[in-house]
Design a binder for these strands. Sequence first.
DNA 1: CCTTGACCTGGAGTGCGCTCCAGCTTTTAG
DNA 2: CTAAAAGCTGGAGCGCACTCCAGGTCAAGG
Lengths: 148, 148
Amino acid sequence: MKPYLSIQEAAASTGLSPDTLRYYERIGLIGAVPRGPGGQRRYVPDDMAWLAFLLRLRSTGMPVRQMQAFAELRRQGEATAGARRALLQAHLDGLRQNIRQLEETATVLADKIDHYRQLEASCPTSKAKGANHAKRSICPRSGKTQGN
Amino acid sequence: MKPYLSIQEAAASTGLSPDTLRYYERIGLIGAVPRGPGGQRRYVPDDMAWLAFLLRLRSTGMPVRQMQAFAELRRQGEATAGARRALLQAHLDGLRQNIRQLEETATVLADKIDHYRQLEASCPTSKAKGANHAKRSICPRSGKTQGN
DNA sequence: CCTTGACCTGGAGTGCGCTCCAGCTTTTAG
DNA sequence: CTAAAAGCTGGAGCGCACTCCAGGTCAAGG
């Protein structure tokens, strides 16, 4: 079995494009991918694992700058383990807060959708008008309150 | 009490900049904010509520294009309630999936951090080398496996 | 009345994260 | 051996979501 992947295979396996892989290398997110005799990149399992981790960071909204910082620390070796842990910890803290926020908004959206559903179900011909806060009937009366 | 907010007050209360508020109006995210005699914008509570909702959508990653679509539907009135609900529902579905993904990554990060912590704690002088998957000792032996 | 600061408009500029391109070399299938 | 496909580099270009600017208007305090 091949002990490495071509750039195209690496692209397929990460979901990134070859251009993006080269870009990541250029900006130092992945440093010095080993090359074959013709100068082509040979992505080894280590590279792939690192890429997968980068993608996780990216998917949680870490900006490229920060990933660069992390990559640089990693390149500097063992001595930076503490700094790397701190960076990850900070990111994780932010992420957890972000998740809470998203969950809150998810319930708000769900409520709004429910509201729409009720409007659609219970206001016969003159359809719903949006999230007005009417207490008695959810059907819109008149006046031009424009709900969301 | 003032029944409206100046653009600056609206900015302060939403966390957006006055420029961004004007920009949102230009691109149709908020339509036709009422104006005072001199042409200045007067943000009324309805506008503020709508803005708050937009910000929720934005914070959950909805692209401006989609918010524009939603705003346009809203402008078209009651008849589009169904479409709006569908749009929100789709967004909510995506959001829920996104949250799950983030949670998964959060645990991965937490694990990685734990791993770092153990390395730092148990490998005396030669500090940690990263997330190698060694089974016996977590302390790095030799060879150049570069962990994350 | 006059100044000062907020506001207005249309349009240009910015930072991020890619994405595409030209021009050339290398690899691979027939 | 040849032709097509894939890779390489350096640099330009792009879409998004703002952000800033010039040049002018308006309004509120002294």
